[in-house]
Design a protein around this nucleic acid. Structure first.
Lengths: 247, 247
DNA sequence: ACCTGAACACCGTTCAAGT
DNA sequence: ACCTGAACACCGTTCAAGT
């Protein structure tokens, strides 16, 4: 069982050749995420991954059938991170809000990984648990049958799509992101008043909008729409008033 | 000015070598879109594009500095298609709804192109006009200043993100999409009742949900949230009731 | 039985050499 | 001045050859 290779102490990854059997799917996924976080999508290739693991450029193919299979495993890791320690609230509104915020926080923490794996279905346990929690909230809101399925898909896709696109944008090259920033800070500031009167009217406010606020705004709209349509409004102290007003 | 090359009659693209000057940015963008529509993202490379145009594999570089520049030009073409013939309604709710539906319809008609160019800023005239129309609707709803900027960004990003992600999914390989379909048609159907009770409860309804209905559902939530928060509700016959109820 | 690494058919992009 | 196409440094993936 013991041997004299490497430095031991659980530090498996090393600069020199890895012992046979030293590679595992878990280790490869961990290194993939590290590589994606530090080098971005452009720095994530199977040859680079093999070399970063101190192994052959083609070594990963002994554990994953293709790069896409590896991407799905990374997606599963993100699902686990997003769901870690999450217990649904008694209040279905809070459960939905928290789900959306958790998905977004995880994706924004790993933009490159998220840009590759967002809106992919892994059918892993973490994903299934997240789905069950979200459907549970939809059922708690009083939706049933086909309508519950529809509302669940709408809310789930909203969370994944929004977080996925925000992450994809952050995963672009710095240079390309700059181009977008310039649109807000300079191009729209000097917009032609006659041609684009509405842009002109809020041209100084447009560059000041923050991403977190945009997300919370659209989330509040979605939740408000849901509360209005839900057969069983939340009875929380915070939400009871809104539910009564809409009912 | 005239010459004896080619068949004339405005049909510039041919199988054999193109006359010098025969390539233009417009023609390259048109062929890019055709290539993306028929072959998908995998079939869209600059060498292939050059060959499809009957020119050198590196010919595109004489008209675009990089592949990314070409992608932005394709994005502009999609913007033009989405905005073609669009005149905003007197009713701001209808204007927003129509904007969201148009963006989605265009992206779904060109999923591969949309998957490459969604949420990119081109600052082209079509994009600027779309922005002006949407901000106009936000102002018509009574939002002002910083709040108007925030609400505009929320609605605009919602349209782009949603349509972009739906398109990106459709742009995946057929094989990968199948994997997702299987999740709904078989995996969730035979889900463990004890482990995932909420999924189990609507397991037969989940596979029946249609993408169009999902989109209309989330859109209705967003609009309902907007109407509720808007300082100036729409007075249309259709929307007056909802505005009054929320006010 | 498992691992290696040479090799294949591509990429995006550059640039010396031509016309 | 403009265009060409060889060439570079990569990809994802395969597979004969080794151990």
């Amino acid at each position: 069982m013991t041997d004299q290779r490497g430095g031991g102490h659980g530090r498996v990854r090393g600069r020199r050749g890895l012992p046979r059997g030293g590679l595992s799917p878990e280790l490869i996924v961990t290194e993939s995420l590290r590589l994606l976080d530090t080098e971005g999508v452009a720095g994530f290739s199977l040859p680079k991954l093999g070399r970063a693991l101190g192994a052959d450029p083609t070594a990963v193919y002994r554990h994953f059938a293709s790069k896409d299979d590896l991407v799905l495993a990374v997606a599963d890791r993100l699902n686990e991170e997003a769901g870690a320690g999450f217990t649904p609230s008694d209040c279905w509104v809070d459960t939905m809000t928290e789900t959306a915020r958790r998905v977004r926080a995880t994706y924004l923490a790993h933009p490159a990984a998220a840009s590759l794996s967002a809106y992919r279905t892994t059918q892993g346990p973490a994903e299934m648990r997240g789905i069950d929690i979200l459907i549970g909230a939809v059922l708690a809101a009083g939706f049933e049958g086909a309508e519950a399925a529809l509302v669940y898909r709408a809310v789930a896709d909203f969370c994944l799509f929004w977080a996925g696109c925000e992450a994809s944008f952050l995963a672009l090259d710095e240079r390309l992101q700059k181009n977008d920033q310039n649109a807000w800070t300079s191009a729209y500031l000097s917009v032609d008043r006659a041609g684009y009167p509405s842009i002109w009217q809020i041209r100084t406010e447009l560059p000041e909008v923050r991403d977190d606020d945009i997300f919370e705004t659209i989330l509040s709209f979605v939740i408000a729409g849901l509360v209005q349509r839900a057969p069983r409004p939340c009875r929380c102290p915070r939400h009871a008033a809104a539910g009564a007003a809409a009912g």
